[in-house]
Design a protein around this nucleic acid. Structure first.
Lengths: 228, 228
DNA sequence: CAGAATCCTGACTGATCGTTCAGGATCGGG
DNA sequence: CCCGATCCTGAACGATCAGTCAGGATTCTG
């Protein structure tokens, strides 16, 4: 419902990419259960048959869309991270992008659906495992880097990563469903406070106002995460 | 797939109750998306048409099943609570029944599905709101009772109830999905520790081993929640 | 430019399921 | 015993979709 259907791409690969983008859009809009091949085709401005032609099956398309969303997340994070950033800054950036109030809204809803599917579907379970492992690995690596720099204190990085990841999930559920309580904006702060306690970081240092550079198309939007 | 289909009940109301029980069983087994009228009918040992006759629609049946599950939870809790129980004991009992490792496993999966549905479906959103409100009200009332007894210290009972409820949700997600980390048995302990901190209760008092009397059919099962 | 590979489409198929319906069984009250 | 209400059933309807297929258009290759 956003792309002008008339604009057909010449390059087949570009067409494929558009379908994938359409799949992501519909997925975030209607969820797994509500996504139809016809919807994706309509948003992409093509025929349902072409979706099947490129992705062989609906589940295949959705799985690839999900993987694409995950890759985008890490890409955005690394694009926003200056080469010389220290561990504290990297932690802040990570928290910003992962927060529901941040750019990842909608993505969390997708992951929640994956969780539910993982209860019964083997493929979804494997996907969740992989996503979780990558996320915890990222945190663990960041923590050990912080220790090496001398700015973090932590006896068991993988365990701390697990706890912090779990907390983030719980907060995300609350924030995504909150009808009014647990405001989105608080998520970032709540998580960083917990991280400060977990990693022995000076609370004020971690929560100090920062500017995150996001590399969005066109203008480079910047947002300040201020400490209430 | 548990009830002998041949045993037909004479009383129509009893028949209806069996169908409801069948709906719960199938729901916990296959989830919302996977539950078919035919499945419920098969488990209940009747025809699909009778399911519709009694509940008018599949969604109606599922909604009533969900409500029944919730009622059962509170019924079980109050049945296991001695009339003279103090706030600390009531808190322990509540935690036991709500823990994923406890009797509520399967129920948590259902609620997770409700959460996801609540993202898009108005009815599910209302249901979640109601369930959440009842749960937080129960916690708030318990907290104020503990304050009156002089065993809890807490400046803002509703806020503490909110935080503890949120933590329980987050832990439930982790435990329900945990392939190995976050063992079920730890949930009870983790939550009680947090409650002890939140409510200013002596940690050892709250975590001391107890025996919960469950009023199950046939033998009265008892389980000791031991503090590692 | 010819032929093949790739890309694309509309029309169709086949399967799944919620729900309806016409009527049969059962039961309770008068 | 009779009659209406309630309870119950098998069969069928109709809607929804994922995926197929035969063939047309376009692009690539030699």
């Amino acid at each position: 419902m956003s792309a002008p259907a008339a604009l057909a791409a010449k390059d087949p690969q570009e067409r494929r990419r558009r379908i994938l983008a359409a799949a992501i859009e519909v997925l975030e809009d209607k969820g797994f259960a509500g996504t139809r091949i016809a919807d994706i085709a309509a948003v992409a401005g093509t025929s349902p048959a072409l979706v099947v032609y490129h992705f062989k099956t609906l589940d295949g398309a959705l799985a690839e869309a999900l993987g694409s969303v995950e890759d985008d997340f890490y890409h955005n994070v690394s694009a926003a991270t200056p080469p010389n950033a220290d561990a504290v800054e990297r932690l802040r950036i990570l928290s910003y992008f992962a927060s529901v109030g941040g750019p990842a809204m909608g993505t969390w809803a997708l992951y929640m659906e994956v969780w539910v599917r993982a209860l019964r579907d083997g493929g979804a379970r494997a996907m969740r495992r992989a996503v979780d492992a990558r996320w915890r690995h990222t945190l663990t690596e960041l923590i050990t880097a912080g220790i090496d720099e001398g700015s973090f204190r932590c006896v068991d990085p993988p365990a701390s990563a697990l706890r912090l990841a779990a907390l983030m999930d719980g907060l995300a559920v609350q924030a995504a469903l909150a009808d009014m309580d647990v405001p989105d904006e608080e998520m970032n702060r709540l998580w960083l406070e917990a991280a400060a306690a977990e990693l022995g970081i000076d609370r004020d240092l971690l929560l100090a106002p920062v500017t995150i550079r996001t590399s969005n198309k066109a203008a480079s939007v910047s947002k300040t995460a201020s400490h209430t």
